[in-house]
Design a protein around this nucleic acid. Structure first.
Length: 480
RNA sequence: GGCGCUAUCGUCUAACGGUUAGGACGCGGCCCUCUCAAGGCUGAAAUACGGGUUCGAUUCCCGUUAGCGCUACCA
């Protein structure tokens, strides 16, 4: 069921330090699904404040991956780096109101204390050395040229709790939260300040993000409260894990959306699979198009436990989408794929009607677009190899070659070349040569397609036509 | 170590106190068949453990265990 809540505003805020990985894509997707289901807005914000690690190129790739997935945004992309003044202003305000304070402790000093605490197996929180500094002392230190950061003054009593949209109630004791840094010594805002500041200014109503942010949440809630702003609704998505149950990362190999695109995964299949990773429609439906997922999406059906990424199931979903897609559409996609693989330029067929025939035959055995070019090469170009496996299985006996030559002869002589005549001719020849029909069919299949695995042979023969069939049979007969 | 979150077949999940614990991927078998798929039928496979609450717990509460996450002047 879709709704119309224009006040619902969600955002996806990737940092452009790498490709869009499936975890990020899933977060983006769930935000987008919520916005589309609720009739709200989906805002894209690039968190590029870490100049060292961020790049324009990565931003471009992330945007490209999102567009490919069909995840479109209503506002943005905003650059967080261009908003630092807004962040600073808020820190200044907190400073003026006594809700934040200057800290002159050096990273070295802090590191010492942290290490000492670790040695004694004590939990370490910033010890508030600089909290008691008078205005005078602060001025003096600054005049002396000492660098300082701005720390948020965290209330030391009570607890911060929130009702997580996905995880339920979560509570933290305030005394276990340290006075975290708002402004670095170079004046740049830190993550907590930036996110809260931007989410406030962008009127974000629902923050849906990975569960790895749960521990950050109380700090951010405290910031909202100190700034006198309402806290948005919060929802934390379970993490996506690798087969080893560790959080999915580059170590697991294929994590970039880009990668799956290159493998021949369809965007709607990846969307479908990712949606099912943590969410279920509540019944047994699994293969869905994006419109149906939008219609049925609902935060209350999001699971709380982490999920292992299973590429076998992704491939199955992809295969399902390939099977069900409109043949005309699929044909265009395969044609584009062949073109990108530089296969189309040497193809004996460039017209969509013939490609369509091949796609129809091939698709029940293709899980990815890549399978079309891998297993279907001989359907598009004349230049293909005979796989060793097929050679061993059906062309190992030398007596088979003259039979292939003979079949070529008879096919060439056929006045009417059709499925019926092609089949009859072949079976007749097998009978005469005392061959099992299956063996001859297998040998011909290898000769015509290069593989021992292919669609129904006589369909293939009709598809290739008399000329190419005869030529390929002769070529195979000659390799003896 | 501290804090937090989580826990149903190998994996993704359904169940919102009462079911022979359902579906899907993967795996095995059968059917179809010129191979391989697709398709159909089918088999094995789960409530982590221990206490409560209740007439009755997968479900609610507590503990144990395990996994994951956070613990920076990164985001």
């Amino acid at each position: 069921m879709t709704h119309n809540n224009p006040s619902l505003r969600v955002r996806f805020a990737p940092s452009p330090t790498g490709y869009l990985h499936v975890g990020g894509a899933r977060t983006a997707l769930f935000n987008w699904l919520l916005a589309r289901n609720q009739g709200g807005s989906f805002i894209l914000r690039i968190e590029d404040t870490d100049a060292q690690r961020s790049s324009k190129e990565m931003t471009r790739i992330i945007l490209d991956s999102m567009q490919w997935l069909g995840i479109d945004w209503d506002e943005g992309p905003y650059s967080q780096a261009q908003r630092v003044q807004l962040h600073r202003d808020k820190a200044e305000r907190l400073l003026a109101e006594g809700k934040a304070y200057r800290c002159f402790c050096s990273p070295e000093q802090l590191g010492e204390k942290r290490k000492a605490a670790e040695r004694e197996r004590r939990a370490w929180l910033y010890d508030r050395t600089c909290l008691g500094l008078t205005l005078d002392q602060v001025r003096k230190q600054q005049q002396a040229g000492l660098a300082s950061v701005v720390r948020f003054c965290v209330p030391q009593t009570g607890e911060t709790t929130f009702q997580d949209l996905i995880q339920g109630e979560i509570r933290f004791e305030n005394r276990l939260i340290e006075d975290f840094v708002l402004l670095r010594s170079d004046g740049m805002p830190t993550y907590h300040l930036s996110v809260v500041s931007d989410d406030i200014d962008m009127r974000i109503s629902h923050v849906i993000r990975g569960a790895d942010h749960i521990s950050n949440t109380p700090k951010q809630i405290l910031l909202y409260q100190a700034l006198g702003e309402p806290v948005p609704q919060l929802g934390h998505l379970p993490l996506i894990l690798g087969q080893d149950k560790k959080r999915l990362s580059k170590r697991h190999g294929a994590t970039a959306v880009e990668h799956y695109r290159a493998q021949g995964i369809l965007p709607q299949a990846l969307v479908n699979y990712l949606a099912l990773l943590g969410w279920s429609p509540g019944d047994d439906r699994e293969v869905m198009d994006t419109a149906e997922i939008i219609r049925r999406f609902d935060l209350s059906h999001v699971n709380r436990a982490n999920a292992v990424f299973d590429s076998a199931k992704l491939e199955w979903i992809n295969a399902q989408h390939i099977q069900r897609m409109d043949i005309q559409k699929l044909t265009e996609i395969v044609k584009q794929w062949l073109d990108d693989a530089r296969l189309l330029e040497q193809a004996f067929t460039k017209d969509s009607t013939m490609i369509k025939e091949a796609v129809e035959m091939l698709r029940p055995r293709c899980k990815t677009l890549h399978d079309f070019s891998r297993w279907g090469r001989a359907f598009f170009v004349n230049d293909f190899d005979i796989a060793l496996e097929g050679r061993k299985k059906y062309l190992s006996h030398p007596a088979i070659f003259p039979v292939l030559g003979e079949l070529a002869q008879r096919y060439e002589a056929l006045a009417e070349f059709s499925l019926a005549t092609a089949e009859h001719t072949l079976r007749q020849l097998a009978l005469e040569k005392n061959l099992k029909p299956g063996d001859l069919i297998g040998a011909v299949r290898v000769a015509l397609t290069g593989n021992s695995v292919a669609p129904s042979l006589f369909d293939v023969i009709v598809y290739l036509g008399q000329q190419r069939t005869v030529t390929r049979l002769r070529q195979a007969a000659d390799i003896s």
